[in-house]
Amino acid sequence: MSLSERFEAAAAEVKTVLTEKPTNEELLELYGLFKQAKEGDNTTAQPWAVQLEASAKWKAWTALKGTSKDDAMTKYIALVDSLKAKYATK
């Protein structure tokens, strides 16, 4: 299976396999890695500070600036695997 196929499988699994909700920090890490893998570096305008959720997501994605799409996919897959071990029904 190619890296992109494994990435897409992990993205699908994270929505169905986890029986408990990960922490906000884990969710932001997932978001940032997903966006970096799909779109590359963040070039969007920073949201207003009062837009807390949008601002947190923007910061999580921007923190990964310079990370290659392949590296982001690999890290995303590893994070999903660790979350499955932590939050999926055994």
Rank of each mutant, 00 (worst) to 15 (best):
M73P: 01
T43C: 07
K35S: 11
K75E: 13
T16M: 15
K86Y: 03
A10E: 05
T44K: 13
V50D: 06
A85C: 09
G32E: 11
A49Q: 08
T62I: 01
K75S: 06
Q46E: 15
A45R: 02
Y76L: 00
A10V: 03
S68I: 10
K75D: 10
A45D: 15
S55R: 00
L52F: 10
G32V: 13
P47A: 05
L3G: 03
T43G: 13
T23H: 08
V14R: 06
K90P: 15
A45M: 14
A72F: 03
E39H: 15
A45Q: 15
A72L: 01
Y31P: 08
E25R: 10
P22A: 09
N42I: 12
R6P: 02
E20S: 15
I77Q: 06
L18T: 08
S55H: 04
L18E: 07
T43K: 14
A88Q: 01
A54Q: 10
V17Q: 14
A63Y: 08
L52Y: 07
P47H: 07
L3W: 13
L33E: 02
W48C: 03
K84L: 00
G66W: 01
K57H: 06
T16V: 15
A49S: 11
E13R: 10
A11W: 08
A78Q: 04
A60E: 00
A60K: 03
K65W: 03
E26Y: 09
D81Y: 07
